[in-house]
Design a protein around this nucleic acid. Structure first.
Length: 111
DNA sequence: CATATGACGTGGG
DNA sequence: CCCCACGCCATAT
């Protein structure tokens, strides 16, 4: 199945492709759709779409934070939807930080 | 046509 | 963690 020619449609497809229980950044979605730099367009499309099946709640800012104003209605809505599918949301942030090994360990290796 | 506005992103202080 | 500047781009005014 050939990729949609309509860029807007590609973006929505990229959003629909985010697996349940996972998230992606606006810029990330744009890149996946082959439209680097169009993060803002992604946001605009989500706001404009009326498709109830569109998993818009899985799209966050690149820092893992919900894009809406903290404690706003839509903010609570998104946090709730995410938690509903098992995503950890703390203070409006998903997975506080992809904390891995320290840089020291990363550079100098174990022991 | 000139500005302003955002569900954004990155880099720097 | 905070704040700021700048880049980016479709829409709205």
């Amino acid at each position: 199945m050939a990729p949609a020619a309509d860029p807007a449609e590609r973006i929505l497809a990229a959003v629909r492709a985010i697996p349940r229980g996972e998230v992606a950044g606006y810029g990330e979605v744009a890149r996946r759709a082959g439209l680097p730099g169009r993060a803002r367009w992604v946001a605009r499309l989500l706001a404009a779409s009326d498709d109830p099946e569109l998993p818009w709640h899985r799209v966050l800012r690149s820092d893992g934070r919900i894009a809406f104003a903290a404690d706003s209605d839509p903010w609570r809505e998104q946090a709730g939807r995410l938690r509903a599918e098992g995503v950890q949301v703390v203070a409006g942030r998903v997975r506080p930080a992809p904390r891995g090994r320290s840089l020291d360990a990363e550079v100098w290796g174990p022991a």
